[in-house]
Design a binder for these strands. Structure first.
Length: 462
RNA sequence: GGUGGAGUGGCCGAGAGGCGAGGCUCGGGACUGCAAAUCCCGCUACACGGGUUCAAAUCCCGUCUCCACCUCCA
């Protein structure tokens, strides 16, 4: 069985076939860095990170491009609002995104191109579009793409040109058709601009992705991803620009659904509490990742703090098993056939969660029976799955924080608690349960949980 | 107006003609001095009305409700 993925362009699940055997080129629309990342932004990052990890595990050499759009209307507005240069605003939020990606163990892209670094490529693309007769400069400094000349325009979103409302992104009177969109915008006083053969100006919103995808992935590449809300206009316009230039562009289009709050798309009911940085005050990065990755990428994820907390507790159960299992022997992550089948089926992560539940139950039973091979078997399968999901608790990305607590401090703590536990065991042995419970209460009041197991008591920080 | 999606048990969340995903909560039980952890059992759901079929959550027709996109969107 091989990998199948849902292609928005054909609205069906197709067997994935790389253009070049063994290699996959992916372009993911990254952030327009104009505000702090919220969990919707980062869900997209996590979903496509899972795709990337699965492709890597499947043996592909993956070239993953995720852009940063660092020049755009909203950034300019924000700059005025924050009373700071537009480039400082863009940099500030780009850092916030990078930090959020890092906290959630999203692999850094192979390359992360910024729009402002690719003005040359954008101008070259426009020149090509003008030459081929698809773009025109009406003389007001703007350049537009003439969408009516493209037979395939709007095939991704399945709309008809005449049903669309006119684009409101520029002076209507200069357009040949109100649906034509701006490739390039003539400069206005006080705004950043770059020189072009048609006068100074700045890029329109969609151009950068076409230009950068072409620069790093070539005329035709395997997968283009992004949020559902980018299908129109952003991705339609990318296709329009690229195909008008004569490029094949993306073969497979993948879109992640958004995070909703009370049934509504999150950006509508924006709350500061849904900013990644704020959520990370409540749960760890690995737990937030587990939560965001747990629903199928094409399903809406209805956010609530209750669901987040519940999901985090479920994850800690898995983590706790793996920690115990590690005491029985070396656990090597392994990919089971069932796991592979689920992932190959358009990344059926929810099915994977059901598999993990089964392995977890078997593993816990094996621990109570001290069946080392069964313990390691369950733990291996779970770790193999978690690795692909980017949620392996032993991943250095997550252990780095804990490692900063120096190991000799840990030894001191272990020694102190071991002493107390020994006292408690002695009390229990002489059936002095009052004293035993007093010791346990004292330890747990410090936030340490005591569990009595067949092989003696174990402690953990709760 | 156009286009697309959704409605599943107390909650979250899969599935897409047959033999009830899974998790959480709740109830019962095992283990335990008591806890904790863990395991076992239980709680039989698919918006509504028709239809097709031996068989429908799944297909068809109709209806209701909600959400999204139609040039700021992940």
């Amino acid at each position: 069985m091989s990998l199948s993925l849902y292609n928005t362009a054909t609205r069906s699940i197709e067997t994935f076939k790389a253009i070049t055997a063994g290699k996959v080129g992916i372009y993911l629309c990254g952030a327009t860095v104009q505000a702090e990342p919220h969990i919707g932004h980062i869900r997209s990052g996590v979903n496509f990170d899972i795709l990337r990890r699965w492709l890597i595990h499947s043996g592909y050499d993956v070239c993953f491009i995720r852009n940063v759009t660092d020049i755009d209307d909203k950034i300019l507005h924000k700059a005025v609002h924050e009373n700071s240069p537009w480039w400082a605003v863009a940099m500030k939020y780009e850092r916030a995104f990078t930090e959020a990606y890092r906290a959630l163990n999203v692999m850094p892209p192979t390359y992360e191109p910024r729009a402002t670094g690719h003005i040359t490529q954008m101008i070259a693309l426009i020149e090509r579009l003008v030459e081929r007769g698809y773009a025109y400069a009406p003389g007001n400094g703007d350049l537009y793409l003439e969408v009516r000349k493209l037979a395939s325009y709007l095939t991704l979103s399945g709309q008809k040109l005449d049903d669309l409302l006119p684009a409101g992104d520029a002076d209507e009177s200069m357009k040949r058709d109100p649906r034509d969109f701006a490739l390039w915008k003539g400069s206005k006083p006080g705004e950043p601009s770059w020189p072009t053969p048609w006068g100074d100006g700045r890029p329109g919103w969609h151009l950068e992705c076409s230009a950068m995808a072409h620069a790093y992935l070539g005329e035709e590449f395997d997968i283009h991803g992004g949020g559902l809300d980018l299908i129109f206009p952003h991705h339609e316009n990318e296709i329009a620009q690229s195909q008008a230039a004569g490029y094949g562009f993306a073969r497979v289009w993948m879109h992640n659904a958004w995070v909703t709050a009370s049934g509504e798309k999150m950006s509508k009911s924006l709350g500061n509490s849904l900013i990644v940085r704020e959520i990370l005050k409540r749960v760890r990065g690995i737990e937030l990742r587990w939560y965001l990755g747990s629903a199928h990428y094409r399903s809406m994820l209805e956010f609530s703090f209750e669901a987040l907390e519940e999901s985090a507790i479920a994850f800690r159960r898995i983590e706790s098993f793996l920690q115990r299992a590690a005491e029985y022997g070396e656990v090597k992550p392994a990919i089971s056939g069932e796991f592979k089948a689920a992932m190959d089926d358009d990344l059926a992560v929810p099915a994977v969660l059901a598999l993990i539940s089964g392995w977890l139950r078997a593993g816990n039973t094996a621990i109570s029976e001290a069946n080392t091979s069964a313990i390691c078997d369950a733990a291996s399968k779970i770790r193999g799955a978690l690795e692909v999901l980017g949620c392996d608790p032993f991943d250095a990305a997550f252990t780095a924080d804990q490692a900063s607590v120096s190991s000799n401090k840990k030894e001191v703590l272990d020694g102190l608690i071991a002493g107390l536990l020994q006292e408690r065991e002695e009390a229990r042995a002489r059936k002095d349960f009052a004293s035993a419970d007093r010791i346990r209460d004292r330890i747990s009041s410090l936030g340490i949980t005591i569990e009595d197991t067949a092989s003696g008591p174990r402690w953990s920080i709760s």
